[in-house]
Every structure is written in structure tokens, then in C-alpha cells.
Simulated assay, not measured.
Amino acid sequence: MSTLRIGWIGCGTHANEMLLPQLTRFEARIAALCDVDAGKLAATAARFGVAPADTTPDWRQLLARTDLDAVAIAAGPAAHFEIGMAAVARRLPVFIEKPPAPSAAEARQLAAAAAAAGVPVVVGFMKRYSTANRIAANLIHAGEFGRPASFLGQYMTAPTYFSGDPDYTGFYLHHCVHYFDLVPHLMGEVASVASRRHELAPGKLLLHVDFRFASGGIGTLVVGTHQSRGTPMEWWQVMADHRRVEVRNVHEVRYYRNPPFKFGDAAASLHDGEDTLVWEPNLTAAANEDHKGYFALLADFLAAVRGEPVSVPTAADGARAMALLEQALANQA
């Protein structure tokens, strides 16, 4: 298998701590590196072994190279859209961190361009790829689970995380958008969405998002900026008829079926097919786990670059998530 040559744009904390360390585990190398901040560019190049000659502050110069197999962008919504469009025009496969654009309209434009060019654009919705979420989603989509009837979940953060963002735009685009991809991934097509808002104090926002699904199912998502990041802040549950699956803190899966009561049964035991199943990772071997999902997400991106058939979150999925987010905010009480 030949080593893929990646042009990487964006050398911030997220790229350095979450994305690039995972990329180095594959048959891929950073052939070109770009950031407008000279200090971040030099530090990232030194950390990941990129020669100074292969660094540039100008993404247009990076895209002009003829030795790249793909481009990855982690530089903010406006850059994601502008550079993504240019990369698609160059017919280069693209990985774009979420959100793919500042607005649903621009995200749809990017999706249309990718479809017309036949270029894979993979959006960084890593929530689909978290090991626990993948297990739970596979249970939900299996025939025995039945039609999902409801979604209930919470995905919180702290006021300090978006403290420089008084209108909550960053909270919506960088935090909330994850679940506007994950919820329809689990539950199917969304028929309508609205939200209820409560601002406890400046910088401390609570939203209850109400979903109705084309299947007839319903859902509630709680998101907000008023919880400590030092505590578990993420949990979700999907229920069907006499079945439900839960994911707690992105690492524990519980699958509940319809067991009989155990009292009065002298031979009471646990039975496959009816009693509760629980999965959690071996945290003493953390290098072999993928709690957040970035490793599996990048694996699928690189497979898409090689032309292998993989199911990935596409630019069209990004446009859908952005549209649902905007609808929820527009239909707000």
C-alpha cells in the first residue's frame, strides 16, 4: 500500500492534539503544511517532521502543488468552505472538520460542487465513530431492535469554553452541530425541529431541542453552556418497543431488552437474547480504544481517498446538519 500524501491546513490545538496524532498511525504523511500563524506552523512542522520547505502560510500555494493525494482542513467554518470549494475544483479529496461552512446555504453549495465533481468530501462528525456510539448505532439499525420511537440525550459544555463568543455562534457551530448529525444518523429523517431557550446568565445558555421524525418518532436533545467540563456531560438513549440502548460518557453501552422478573425463580440466571448487555472499554489499554472516534474517522477518510467503498459523513450530511441547526434556532421559544 503506497503512502498517501496529505496537504494539511490548520495547525491549532485541535489539529495538534486530536487529528494529526491519529493521522500518523496510518500509511500517510503530511506532504505540505499550512497555517497563517508562523509560530504554530513552525511548531507543528517540527512536531510532525515536516520540512520547512513544505510549509506555507498561503493555502492557495499548498493547493497549487501537484504531489498531493488529498487535503485536510481544520481552520474554522469560513476557511472550511472557501478552501473546500477550491480543493474540490482541483479534484482533490477533502477532509473538513465540522462545521463544513458558516451556513447551511454554503454547506449545500459545497455538497453540490462535490457531487458534480465526483470528489469525496468527508466531514469530521466523529461522534458517529466513537466506539460506544458505533456499537449502539449498529444495535439500533439491526432488525431485532425494531423502529426507534424516541431519542433523549444531553451534550453539555462549560461557559469558559466559548467565553469569547457572546452570541453563542461558536457553541452552535462547534458543539451543537455534532448532534444535528448524530441524531438523524440514529433515528432517520427529521420531519421538523424546534427549540426552547433559557439563558441563566450571560454566557450560560440552555437549549431543549425538540425533534419529530418522519418515522413518527420523537426526540429531545438538551445542550447548554452551564456545566463543569470536569464532570461527564454526554449521554443519550434511543428507545423502541420493549428495547432501549444507552451510551454514557462516550464509553459505556447498555442494551436493555424485555426479560421476565427474576423473583420466585429458583433457577434465575442471565440469558442471552433477553437480559441486559453492557459494554465498556478496557481503559488500561487505552491505545487500543477510540473513545472519541478520530482514529476510525480518519481511517475511513483515507480509504475514501484510495477509492475504497466506505460509508462516511459527506458534505451532504454536513449540509443537512447545518440546516437542522438553523431550523432549530429559527423555531425557538
Rank of each mutant, 00 (worst) to 15 (best):
L4R: 09
G7A: 05
G7E: 00
W8V: 04
E17L: 09
P21V: 01
A32M: 05
K40G: 09
R47D: 04
T56M: 07
L68I: 00
A75E: 00
H80D: 03
H80S: 02
H80G: 03
M85W: 01
A86M: 07
V88M: 06
R91D: 14
L92H: 07
P99S: 12
S103V: 10
L110I: 13
A113K: 04
A114H: 06
A115D: 14
A116E: 15
V123S: 04
G124Y: 14
K127G: 00
Y129H: 13
A132S: 12
L139N: 06
A142M: 09
F145M: 00
G170M: 09
H174D: 14
F180N: 06
V183W: 07
V183N: 09
P184A: 14
M187L: 12
H198D: 08
L207M: 14
H208I: 06
S215T: 09
G224K: 02
S228V: 10
S228C: 13
T231W: 05
W235Q: 15
W235H: 14
V238M: 11
A240D: 11
E246K: 10
H251S: 15
V253Y: 11
V253K: 08
R254Y: 06
Y255E: 07
Y256I: 06
G264V: 01
A267F: 15
S269L: 00
L270N: 04
D272L: 12
W279P: 10
N288R: 14
G293Q: 01
L297H: 01
L297F: 12
L297K: 08
R306K: 13
S311Q: 12
P313A: 08
D317Y: 01
A321W: 08
A323T: 15
E326Y: 03
A328W: 02
A330P: 14
